[in-house]
Write a protein that binds this DNA or RNA. Structure first.
Lengths: 229, 229
DNA sequence: GATTTAATGGACGGATTGGTCTAATAAAGG
DNA sequence: CCTTTATTAGACCAATCCGTCCATTAAATC
């Protein structure tokens, strides 16, 4: 029970053949993911063929199906990769204690707008793209996508709670509801910016959202959601 | 210059062969459009094949390419058909003078939510779907889609102006900016509702939007868009 | 009935789809 | 060197893609 040890304790295992390089570090795998993100954020899942990705990444088909068991599996991998990248962007903005909470949200929206501008507003949000294609996607995408959005929203809720604790937004507002509204609208803004190839939709929505929560008369509450008359 | 008259004056022309039936009334054409709307609002443009539509509509391929010169042409036809249907829905709600302007907007959002519910939240907005796929679509789609959204926004702007004239929303608000924000966010809400297969995103966004414009302290203006400091 | 045009019906075609398969190469331990 | 496993390489496959083609049927005028 020493050498043929169970795969559970993976640290001290001198296995036989060529070692699996760092699980995610394979160059081909990374190039495929990069190409996938570029193409899918621009054209969506259904419109992008595997061969197209292979050519873009300069990788043969054998590698693709070695690292991913199907196009769908690859797509799900892209979702987590995109989420990793995005959460980092989000946290960098949201956890910057040097700024006031609401300013951090502004930092994020500005950064995201710059990001879209860098690609000529031709690339949207992978989550939004795939969400709209759900009808044509394998079912596990749904949970993956909603889960990702939940994560973004949770972070935003925390930020807004902090803003509330610091009195930057009224105590009558519901941070969770606001965070949900923010991401609903922001995805819409990204879609629109991509359609019109310009940043105005992003700015418009951000401006309205900030106007909604800043300096509001405390008599207007968001929490009360229309009790029946 | 009587019988072979130019095609410009089309009323009194006893042409030779079988007359082109009502230009849009062909049964096959209509069945194709109906099937197209169902399938494309659910799965998007790229994910739906022509053959799939033919089977759904019970129409042979010859008919399809007789009525439409390509799949793209068919797609553009769908956009206008969808717009026609949608504008009617919109006007029915927005022009109902028996109600206060803001209530009419509420009537629309409720009706739209019901509409999505009828199809199990599996169908989204054709314009939103195609917008997200723009990267994979022929270029003329862009103008068509933005034009459609502009039309919806114009109607909404008029409605909000009326609301403003009647004092239902503050005189400090900018109806045009509000209308734009509404459609940015509403498309996001539809996308989210389709992803999560439930109406809450629609309700959440609508509630927030109404809360934004109703009963607001007149000191907060939407028009002032951050002059530089 | 002959002619002309509209519309249907579906076989067919070349290109592309996602995916499989096998051979070759690489990198490690024995 | 031999074995074992990882990875690359791309030929190949059945299915589907969008679109063309032509023969047939339908409905009108002459």
């Amino acid at each position: 029970m020493t050498t043929t040890g169970s795969p559970l304790t993976s640290t001290d295992k001198p296995r036989r053949g060529r070692p699996r390089g760092a699980p995610e570090a394979s160059e081909a795998r990374q190039k495929l993911i990069r190409a996938g993100l570029e193409h899918l954020t621009e054209k969506g899942y259904s419109a992008v063929g595997v061969d197209e990705l292979l050519k873009a990444a300069g990788v043969p088909k054998g590698s693709f199906y070695h690292h991913f068991k199907s196009k769908a599996d690859f797509g799900l991998t892209l979702v987590t990769a995109y989420n990793d990248y995005f959460v980092e962007l989000l946290d960098r903005a949201f956890l910057d204690e040097a700024r006031a909470p609401l300013d951090r949200l502004r930092v994020f929206t500005d950064a995201a707008a710059e990001g879209m501008a860098r690609h000529g507003f031709r690339r949207g949000c992978l989550v939004g793209n795939l969400g709209q294609e759900m009808g044509a996607l394998p079912d596990d995408f749904r949970a993956a996508l909603t889960g990702v959005l939940e994560g973004w929203q949770t972070r935003t809720t925390r930020l807004l709670r902090e803003a509330q604790a610091q009195g930057q937004i009224g105590p009558d507002l519901d941070p969770e509801a606001l965070a949900e509204t923010f991401w609903i609208g922001w995805e819409g803004a990204v879609l629109r910016a991509k359609l019109e190839l310009r940043p105005e939709p992003l700015h418009r929505f951000a401006a309205t959202f900030f106007c909604l929560i800043e300096n509001r008369s405390p008599t207007i509450t968001q929490k009360a959601e229309r009790t029946q008359p």
